[in-house]
Structures are given as structure tokens and as C-alpha cells.
Design a binder for these strands. Sequence first.
DNA 1: TTGAAAGCGATACCAA
DNA 2: TTGGTATCGCTTTCAA
Lengths: 336, 336
Amino acid sequence: MATIDDVARAAGVSTSTVSYVLSGRRPISPETRARVEASITELGYRPNAGARALASRRSKILALVAPLRSDNGVPVIMHFVAGIATAARSYDHDVLLVTQDEGPTGLARVSEGAMVDGLIVMDVEADDQRVPVLRKLGRPSVLIGLPDAPSGLNCVDLDFAGAGYEAVAHLANHGHKRVALVGPPSAVYERRTSFATRVLSGFETGVTTYDLTATTTACELTYDGAATAIAKIFDAVPDVTGLVVHNEASLGPILAVLRSSGIVVPRDLSIIAICPDDVAVDLPLPVTSIDIPGEKIGAMAVDMVMGILDGSQGAETRLLAPRITDRGSCAPPPER
Amino acid sequence: MATIDDVARAAGVSTSTVSYVLSGRRPISPETRARVEASITELGYRPNAGARALASRRSKILALVAPLRSDNGVPVIMHFVAGIATAARSYDHDVLLVTQDEGPTGLARVSEGAMVDGLIVMDVEADDQRVPVLRKLGRPSVLIGLPDAPSGLNCVDLDFAGAGYEAVAHLANHGHKRVALVGPPSAVYERRTSFATRVLSGFETGVTTYDLTATTTACELTYDGAATAIAKIFDAVPDVTGLVVHNEASLGPILAVLRSSGIVVPRDLSIIAICPDDVAVDLPLPVTSIDIPGEKIGAMAVDMVMGILDGSQGAETRLLAPRITDRGSCAPPPER
DNA sequence: TTGAAAGCGATACCAA
DNA sequence: TTGGTATCGCTTTCAA
């Protein structure tokens, strides 16, 4: 490969001039710039990433710590990753994938070796082990999610508590008195995954506010799991009329279970989901839902990291307001 | 951060000695090694990735070009990515995520800048634009999939043609005479995505070999899509008795459509799927399937890249033999 | 507006 | 078994 010196020689200028043409950090005369750019294309020159990182102390790489397990919506993860990857490229950065199961060690590894300029951490738990590590590292980082003690850290996410609340409110406003929450698999709760517990608390706030009768249950990602969850709910609140489903993967199975039980949506039971819009649409019956805008949140996370990197932004937490799209799966409860 | 010189000073040895302790490329006396290692832990030293990459011409990073769209199984992609990320770590390498939609440019960018040591490319098309680019780059690379002209390149994948064939054979051996293939969405065929066309051709070979009546159809990833596909099939081959489903996302919807049409599996219709095992299990009715072992294939891809990197391996293509797991969704066809 | 040269922090060759 | 040092390819300060 051609080096920056090759380019300089070919263009008849100094090395530094080529560097400045590339970075734009100082004015270059149009003629010089043209000659340099010509040589660059001619030689097919591409700066060496390692050398650049060494000299500039910037790798132009962001670490993304993503959960590659699938005990909880896979599509939604994809949306986040896609949003992050795309946004990173728009800042001329790349994304290094660090798997969740490397744990806190993974963060230290890529950060301390100066392999990455910043970190984005998904699937945050309430008492996340990585939070203290992140603080120590002192590198720009953004959490997607909301740990118990987010002070000094940057967080971005959907306002899941708000989403839980609004879902209940939506049902209550339709006149429902008995509602239930179908959440993610129990493992997600056991990890105290931030978004799961936040939806739960928002749901409970709503239930109290509107003075409803309610029950909640986890839901495993199998058809059996969906059937069990539904059975549990009807057991706990026999004449339940409204369902909040925060479990994209189980949405299809749940609808199937309901139909085969002769329960008609929304005549007998209203449903509102918290899931990506496309998931809510691609069902036998479109479901009213609160969108989880993964791509947007991912892009925001990148924006925030870049903001910290260029010093234009301090620690903050951004929670996106929940937005309901009515698809007709909620109606007034049946007369008793 | 501490540098290698800091460590050398602290341990009272030369820089090169520290380097050799780290790399193990030359014998070091136990005492020296101990002192150096002590200093390393004490200082919390971590080699600078950029400096190391520059000097050694090895970044210890592999590029993974993955499709972040979702017009075809998302879980299966996750499996591949997980397998690749995990295997890469076992070789002390990291994974840089390059999105599909950067196209051939993305490959050149990370490769020519020496950002990565090797590339793994997923979602390969028959006449993939990236194949010639890959050849030019001259960097170790492995395709997951099989392009039309794979010569000189390294490929690894499930033998999808074999899978298509074996699926048909499985049905034929149960006595079926009229079968159908439900494939991925039409967009996947239009891109001439390698795995889709290979299953198709294997299916057709099987049909010819066993002298069956058959039809094939794409299937969009919505419930409507599943219903349409089923309707089409029964339209083309009214008394079809065996189904090969190569579309993990539609498996659930298809089963739902069948049930609501009063078609009982496997009494009226036998089904064999080509999908990851876990998908075949987590259905209202477990389905006999040919596994797509994403993690394993991903790990093999990494093994191959590493093999090329250390010169122990040349260009080759590895196709994993299809393996059927019987879950009882295939039975002899109903008497007419 | 441009050039010269001193780093950046490792690796690995040449000596001893 | 160990040390000294040139080198990797770029950025950026200092000078002109």
C-alpha cells in the first residue's frame, strides 16, 4: 500500500501538507489541494488506521457491547445495532462488536488498549457490573438503558416507565378496569434488566392511578410459554379485559392462543403492545402499540458519544417520550 | 496509560524484553518474566492497539460484513454473529462490524486502511459484487455462502443444496408424491442470495430424482404472506401432502394458517423445515428440521481466516452436511 | 501557505 | 538470555 510519503512525493509537497489536506485542519491553496488529491486517487492511497490512531490518539472506532443471546426480542436488537452502525459511519467511525458475555472485562480490554474512542453499552441492568468499570475507564460512553445510579453517566432509551404507564392509561381511557401485563421471560427480570423493570413500575403506577385490578406475568419465548402466561392471567384476574404485552416475540403466539381459546380481539380483550412498530404490524391482527424506536435510539447514542468526544456535551440522560399508534386492537371492554 | 517503556523501567529490563515477554517470541528467564509480569499488573499496563498494529502489521481485528436488514431470519443471523464473535475472541481477535449496505466500498475501506487482518462476509449472492473486490484486496477472507465463481476464495456454509435435496428425500421416503417448497421472501430470490437458490436447486433435484409433483413459492414475512403462500401452493398442487419450509420467520404463521384451515400436521400435511434447531423446537408443534448451525459455521469461518493468516491453509470450500432431526411432523401421506 | 522534524508506542532485527 | 535501536505511517508543533 501507498503511504502518505508516497503521496507527498508524487504531488511534490511535504508529508504534512498531505496530512493537512486530509484533515482540513489548516488552509491549503486550491492548486496544492488539487495536486494532492490527484495523487491520492492515482495511488489509491488510504491512511493506515494503526498509524493514524497512534499519532492522533483517536481510533475512529466505537465499541458496541451488544447482547447476542436471544431470550428477548432479536429484531429489536437488530434495530439498535443497525441504527448505531449507520450513525457511526455518518461520523466516519466504525463499530467494534463486543459481546455481552465478556462482561466488564471486555470494556476494559478495548478501552484501555485505546482500541476504541468511545463505548455504547446495551442491555443495561439495574445494578449493572459494568457501570463502575465504565466510570473508571473515563472514556466517552453511553448506556442504552437506565441503571439504578446513572449519575455522571450518559444514558439514552425509550421512557419505558412512561410507556408502561401510557399503555395502562390507554386501556383505562377505553373504560377497562381489569388489566394485565405480559412481560419478557423471567430470566430478563431476574437479571433486573432495566427496560423490563421500568415497564413494570410504569404499569403499576398506572394501575394505582386509575385504580384498576391487575396482574403481571413473565412470558417465556415458546408457544407453551405464551399459553401458560395467558392461563395465569385468566386465573389471577378471571374477567380481565385489557392486556399490555411487552414481549415482541410472544405477540404472535399470544394472539394464536387467544384465538384458539375463542377470545376475539378487541371484542373480548383489548391488547396494546410495547414493541417495534414493524413487529406490531406484521401480525395476523395489527396491534395498537408503543413503538420501541431502536434505530433512532441507537443513532442518538452515537450522537451523544460523538458529542462527548468533541467536548460539546456533558453527562445527561435522555428518555424518549412514548408514542402510541392506534391500530384498532383496543376497544371498550365488553358489557358484563 | 502506562507504556511499554514504563513497564521496562519499572521491571529494570529493556523495552524489547517486555515485548518478548508479551509475545512469547523468544525465551525469557523465569525471574525476568516474573519481574516483568509483576510490573505489568502493577501498572495495569495494556499494549496500545494502534502502536501494536502499526509495528506488527496486525490489528487483531476481523471485519464481519453482516446484513442488518431483516427480510430473512433475524435469529439465524444472530447465531452466525455470536459464533464469529466468540471464535474470534478465542484467537484473541476482535470483530469490526461492517454493514451490508456499505457494499464493496466497506470492504476496501477497512481492508486497505489495514484496520482489519481478515474479512468474513455473510449473505453472499450468486453474482456478488464483493467477490471481485475481495480478490483484489488480497486479504484473508471467508465467505459464508457460495457465489457462482468461488475459485480462489474461501467459502463455508451449510450444504443448502444438499439440505433441499434431503428434505425432499425425507418426504419421498415417507411416501409423498406431491410436495412444495416454501422459501424466503421474493426479495431474497431477486438478490439471488446464495442459500436461497441453492435450496431451490437441491429441492428440484430431489423432485426429479424421486419423480414427484411439486411447486415452489416465495413467502413474505407477514401473516398475510404466509396465508398467500399456502393458498398458492394448494392452488398449484391441490392435493399436496408434503411441505419443505425454508423460511424460519414464517414457520409460526404457516402453522397458524394451516390450523385455521383445519389442516392437521402431520395427518394431512407433513412439514420439514430448514432452520436453526431452536426455531424448530419453539413452535406450537415441534417440526422435523434440518439444522442451520449458525454458531458452528461462524466459528469455522473464523478458523479458516486464522488458518490463512498463519499460512497453514489455502483456498477451500467447506460445506457442512445437512443433518435431519425428526420431531414427528412428517408422516406417510393420507390415503386418497 | 508550506516544510521539517519530533513524537505516538509498539515490534523485531542486529548485537552482545 | 538480554539490550539497543531502527522502523512502522501518521499527526502536529515549530519555523519559515
